[in-house]
Design a protein around this nucleic acid. Structure first.
Lengths: 214, 214, 214, 214
DNA sequence: TGCTAAGCGAGACGGTACGTCCCGTCTTAAT
DNA sequence: ATTAAGACGGGACGTACCGTCTCGCTTAGCA
């Protein structure tokens, strides 16, 4: 039962918005409590009361932006993975390049911040892809004897590496290529998966562009 | 033809040393020109004259520490990769965790700094592993149709990811496992590579512990 | 008819006590509502409810300390004046040097506070000495044609000036010297007053130290 | 031999000017380094580098305003004293009431500040009047056996007391009255001084308003 | 060998942002 | 209805460090 004067929610919103604006325009290196306060027309103590450090503030602002991404479940392993990774990449692409890397570097040394960073920004896509892999195993698309953690790591590291350090953001066909390369090694019967995927895609295309059919 | 008073080389050395000391003790976030100047008993302008920014200074200091790592060439693909990655990991382990990530984050936005960072700290191991892969293809150990860039990326990302973000440094058996997992997918005949490796290893062991032989 | 929850009188006492403690230890400049609240284990609103400003609080606390000083009435003009002034000086000496000056400076601009300050801290001694002078005139010790206000001012200003700004507190012999200088001009028969005073003093001494008498 | 970058004198001037403006408009209690910095378009460190505390700053600003007051030397003791005191009062009247008292209260506890305050703001007029008294004695206008320090104290305290605490500023006729009261006791031949003064005044008036003469 | 000027060391500067103290006020729950 | 209590929105504090500027000295290369 919290007592005392309640916090003004408008300040929360204004500060988070201003934080995102600064991150977008100038990057994490230029993120300054003072500048955020100016933009949000708030005061520094009001910000410090809510987020004890710049890192907490940035984490909260980015988490608010990324929000919850839906996990696709089409029944098609290849589709799920491609689309799922695409969804997360799309989310990360909304963040100015370099911001995540700088923020992580600033958080890495403090366990609490590091955990928050990972749990907030990295774990959701990872969990989603992990879920997809699980379904794929249940479905019989993936070998049950494969270390799913390793597969997960390889996919995740690809995304994270590019997100954090990629010159250019990961292109869609690169994602496809990576997934294919990986699955061709770990899949029970990759050609069947490809066939399945093509069938679904054609059905989908036909549903949307029936005139193209002969 | 440089004229005027020559630069005092003792200052260069003292500043680099002090920079490494600060990086080791406090991390990149606490790396301050003022603090380096204090420790090196130099003045700030003397530092700024030599390295225009903190990033340049840190890059120079870390490059001086890492030095040149030799590229192993044993004729055994599996051994080369394992040992080579181990060499680079050993070099990176001499740098306080988080320093590289923070420095990179600080350099990423400026092409010149980014390139210097990559060329100085990341390219050498990458090039070395690339060379190993090339030799492996020539040797017939790797499929020629595989995108070596992709394989290189997957190995590099593993190292870099762990170096930059790993809680714990990458353990040797983890390296082995990753290489094995990767090669079992892209290798022409993985069992043969394993056999080759075993043969070499036993020869090596026998050379050192002949008494164990029946 | 006051309704609602009654005020806790312990808080009043604790706050005044804490205020005096802060004034004694740190001076008026360090007198902070927050610090007083901490010491008194009260809350700020509880203090603000009772005293609207720091000035009011300080005035109340000092008034409580000074309390009421008894006005001596020995029948001896010289004794009364010396002792009376001594009493007030003793009261002022219980206040850390500089506190009164700072408080006055803080009150001077607001008529209400200024008046309270004067009425609370400066008027009582002034009135007491005025009363003594009145009795002295009635008694025939002072010339009736003298402006008693002027005499009062000269004695008061002496005390106040020193209390507010004196490097050193006014010493007892200085008081005597001032009274003597003044009375020698306005007394009806100054030598007689001195004789009277001496007689009383000796009688008093004898009563307490009879053995010293030959 | 001071080395390093020289101080920008424009900042000194702007800050002192802004300080006086704040003191005039809002008083010492509202004197804030931050506000001064805003008005002077300077920064806080630039101010702190010059004046370590608000007290130092206020003292410097007031001293700059009061500047050096010329000591009149007309050969007429009465005129000198009246005009001299008038000059100092005029200077003090240029300072918002209460500012000096508050500043002094803030300085009193620190010997260095206290001494600076006295030496800067109170000693000059005192010294000037002392010089006048000296000339008056030489000229034979004042009794040589009078304690000039005492006379000086009486005049000074009159001014200082009123300046620091007076409700109303000291009026010109009050000054005249005080001087007259004092000189009638210590002058060698007071009526002669009055006559001398009147003669000079009339000559002066005539020179400026000849038409008024019959 | 002596002169001149470029480059150096040193120190202080103007300035941004920091994180904190204290202010005076507001809201809730209890008396 | 008024209190006690706690947290709030906010103004100002004094400091660390930034990157730069000005100085006087040192040292090479030219006369």
């Amino acid at each position: 039962m919290p007592t005392g004067r309640p916090r003004d929610p408008q300040i929360d919103a204004a500060v988070l918005e201003a934080t995102l604006a600064v991150l977008d325009e100038a990057g994490y290196g230029r993120l300054t409590i003072e500048e955020v306060a100016r933009r949000a027309e708030a005061t520094k103590p009001a910000i410090y009361r809510r987020w004890p450090t710049r890192q907490h503030l940035a984490l909260a602002a980015l988490a608010a932006r990324l929000g919850d991404s839906p996990v696709p479940d089409t029944g098609c392993t290849l589709c799920d993975l491609g689309e799922g990774i695409g969804v997360f990449l799309a989310a990360f692409r909304r963040i100015r390049p370099g911001v995540l890397a700088a923020l992580f570097a600033d958080c890495a040394a403090v366990p609490e911040l590091r955990d928050t960073f990972l749990a907030t920004l990295f774990e959701p896509p990872r969990a989603a892809v992990g879920e997809m892999l699980e379904r794929a195993v249940v479905r019989g698309d993936l070998r049950a004897d494969v270390d799913r953690g390793l597969v997960l790591d390889m996919l995740s590291s690809l995304v994270h590496y590019r997100v954090l350090f990629g010159h250019a953001p990961l292109a869609d066909d690169e994602v496809e290529a990576a997934v294919e390369a990986l699955l061709s090694g770990v899949a029970v019967d990759y050609p069947r998966l490809v066939a399945h995927s093509r069938a679904l895609t054609e059905a989908h295309d036909e549903a949307h562009h029936p005139a193209h059919h002969t």
